[in-house]
């Protein structure tokens, strides 16, 4: 990792759910402008890893440090972590179905988050323009006024990606973005993620090998809560241990 500064440094974390070790002494680093894919069988702990980084789950041990100041993320709650620049896209699309596409994006738009400021905040011309541009970027340009609950599964995925972009995070954690997307949409998604990773850190969890291949980036293989292998896709898929637990099945 020499040359690029480390943005997120996860070391030696473990988590136990009712006696079951979902994460076992896991360490993980990512640079400020890097694309990384995480693969691994069902139940490997990929989502739990994201839960820990975003403050939803507390690890039993280990440390999670952020940025040049090495700030301790374990001391922050979910909203504080989101505000310092970690954005997350969930495995199942979670958008506010009762609200319009534009309301969803407006809420995500980078701006003050305190109640008093939000209370008097009214969108300016440039905010409307930004929301329109974001919607355009994720292919929802003509859907701004629609209730997001009416969108298709794929469109909700896109809307959530749009909300993620609106937050302008420094690190994007993306859990299975391509689920429910058509082939063309998948290609669009890969292109977008590759583009985004030029200016920020992006971590993508994905099952689909073709998708990961198109990302063309370093791959981390998780198994039973710890890192099994790390490197290029060709490198890890040649690893006998990886073949045994994941690809061989």
């Amino acid at each position: 990792m020499s040359g690029t500064s480390t943005l997120l440094e996860v070391s030696g974390i473990s988590v136990t759910f009712d006696g079951f070790r979902a994460i076992n002494n896991l360490s993980f680093n990512i640079g400020a402008a890097e694309l990384r894919a995480i693969i691994g069988p069902n139940g490997a702990g990929k989502t739990t890893f994201m839960d820990i980084v975003t403050g939803k789950t507390r690890p039993d041990e280990g440390s999670v440090l952020w940025g040049e100041m090495s700030r301790n993320l374990l001391k922050m709650n979910e909203s504080q972590i989101a505000r310092i620049g970690i954005g997350r896209k969930f495995q199942r699309p979670t958008v506010f179905e009762d609200q319009s596409v534009s309301d969803n994006l407006m809420m995500a738009l980078k701006a003050a988050r305190g109640p008093w400021r939000v209370l008097v905040w009214r969108p300016k011309e440039e905010d409307h323009a930004r929301v329109a541009a974001l919607a355009e970027q994720v292919g929802l340009g003509d859907q701004l006024a629609r209730k997001s609950g009416e969108l298709s599964h794929g469109q909700k995925q896109w809307l959530e990606i749009g909300m993620l972009l609106a937050q302008e995070p420094k690190l994007l954690l993306v859990d299975e973005p391509a689920a429910g997307m058509t082939l063309a949409e998948r290609e669009q998604t890969t292109a977008l993620l590759v583009e985004l990773a030029k200016t920020r850190a992006v971590v993508v969890v994905e099952h689909d090998m073709e998708f990961v291949r198109r990302l063309d980036c370093k791959v981390t293989v998780l198994h039973e809560g710890s890192v099994l292998a790390e490197g290029s896709l060709d490198h890890v898929t040649a690893n006998p241990k990886v073949i045994e637990v994941y690809l061989g099945r």
Binding site: T54, K56, N77, E78, S79, Q80, A82, R83, G87, R88, F90, T94, F96, E97, D98, Q99, D103, M106, M107, A108, R113, G114, P115, V118, L119, W121, R122, P123, M163, Q167
Partner: peptide
Amino acid sequence: VTSGKFGSVMRGIRDDEARVRFLGYSVETY
């Protein structure tokens, strides 16, 4: 209160408060 972004956050908390947190809003404060 309910018409602008504050109203969006309120309804967001009603429908999925965890998601609102991950957008950076302190749900408890709201």
